[in-house]
Design a protein around this nucleic acid. Sequence first.
DNA 1: CGTGTGCCCTGACAGC
DNA 2: TGCTGTCAGGGCACAC
Length: 271
Amino acid sequence: MPELPEVETTVRGLAQFLDGERITSVRLNRPNLRRPFPPDLVQVMAGAQVTGLSRRAKYGLIHLDRDATVIFHLGMSGRWRIDPSQPDKHDHMVVETADHQFALCDPRRFGSVDLVDTPALDTWPQFASLGPEPLGPLLTPQHLKAALKDKVQTIKLCLLDQRVVAGLGNIYVCEALYRAGISPLRKGGKVTRPQLERLVPHIVEVLSQSIRDGGSSLRDYAAPDGELGYFATRFAVYGREGEPCSNGDGGIIRRIQQGGRSTWYCPKCQK
DNA sequence: CGTGTGCCCTGACAGC
DNA sequence: TGCTGTCAGGGCACAC
């Protein structure tokens, strides 16, 4: 379930074993994921030294010497498997260092791998249009007020739009709106100033908590077959159709469709 | 431009 | 033990 916290957790887990190491080999088991693999990917990666790892929105970045950065996206089902004891038929790219093996496994193949000149990262098209990082200083009520101005789309869909905020996905939009008491059906432009003042810290909090929970499973990475991954958070509304609202207000969690995807919310306390 | 729809792909699970 | 239908963390192309 790769949204921002999962990608952040993945990057931190990879960094433990990959940062500073030299890549000894790269194997591609298929020509493409969502997009074709870059033609020079193997040539650039093999023999390169990893100089650092980072994250932007839901993208993970592996910085190499020679001014190149490998950018991976996990799509819906992607994950990195570290030192797997068995190959998986959906391991599409396998990277090796002297001491470890890293397999990018993605059954649904909605993910991607790109190679970008490090100095040109900011102008990479997929990055150029992204909104602010939700855990950075630029996500403010003022920013949201301006970004949502005159929007007739619902706030749910506005927050999924990576140009408004970068890194939120279906789970955390549902959870943040619930915590902030904002109806997912409200038009973006109609979200009030006090609601936006509440929303920003709730976005920060729910993402931060999830990263913390993910971090607690980092010890698993060292285990054989350790899989980067998916922390066990209990969601307040996501996937809880029909259950009572945990605010104790007597509301029943409802599921609706918005933009072809499910939204869960409490009609009683989200206004 | 903004907005809405459908599709990319495999696997898990429920119901028969 | 199958089948069939539904749904799933995302993003993009395309139609208005």
